[in-house]
């Protein structure tokens, strides 16, 4: 494990570079295939509406995968992430158009722990709503 960020160079409040992740229906079909999660709420509008959703929604695990890219891109080595957890608070609604939805992720160092580790708190927004809660990663730095 070879993180490119040094523990001594970060402090509580250090912001990680924010990123935005576009998601369209095509993204969801592709993620369904790669992950093996073929729940029709992620690709079939008729089904999604029948079960009470406003439209097709992104896989929660897709949003979780995108959000942590802010941390892995910052740390350099994805293996620097030693813990990662989220709560799925709101769905990411993905309309059937060319735009789709945009997941905006920001993150900052919330605590410095022992053993070269820091806790990073993430915020993931879509259409003005928080889509992840309690989104935290523990990262071992150099």
């Amino acid at each position: 494990m070879t993180a490119k960020i040094a523990y001594d160079e970060v402090e509580v409040g250090t912001e990680l570079p924010a990123q935005s992740f576009p998601v369209t229906r095509a993204t969801l079909v592709r993620y369904a295939g790669a992950s093996g999660d073929f729940n029709p709420i992620h690709w079939n509008e008729k089904f999604a509406v029948e079960v009470g959703l406003p439209d097709v929604i992104a896989h929660g695990m897709f949003t979780m995968a995108e959000a942590v890219r802010v941390v892995t891109d910052w740390a350099g080595d994805p293996a620097a992430v030693v813990e990662y957890g989220v709560r799925f608070t709101k769905p990411v609604v993905v309309p059937n158009d060319d735009e789709g939805a945009l997941i905006e992720v920001s993150a900052k160092v919330a605590a410095k722990l022992d053993d070269q580790r820091v806790r990073v708190d993430l915020t993931a927004m879509c259409a003005g709503q928080k889509v992840l809660g309690m989104s935290r990663a523990v990262v071992r730095l150099a």
Binding site: T27, Y31, S35, A65, V68, R69, D73, D77, Y84
Partner: peptide
């Protein structure tokens, strides 16, 4: 599928450069 171009996931030499014996998988 998650649009992540980190070479540690696809390039064995890049993964080895980080100290891994083979390509690694994204956290989720």
């Amino acid at each position: 599928a998650i649009g992540d171009a980190n070479p540690a996931y696809t390039d064995i030499e890049a993964a080895k450069g980080l100290g891994h014996s083979d390509v690694i998988a994204p956290p989720t």
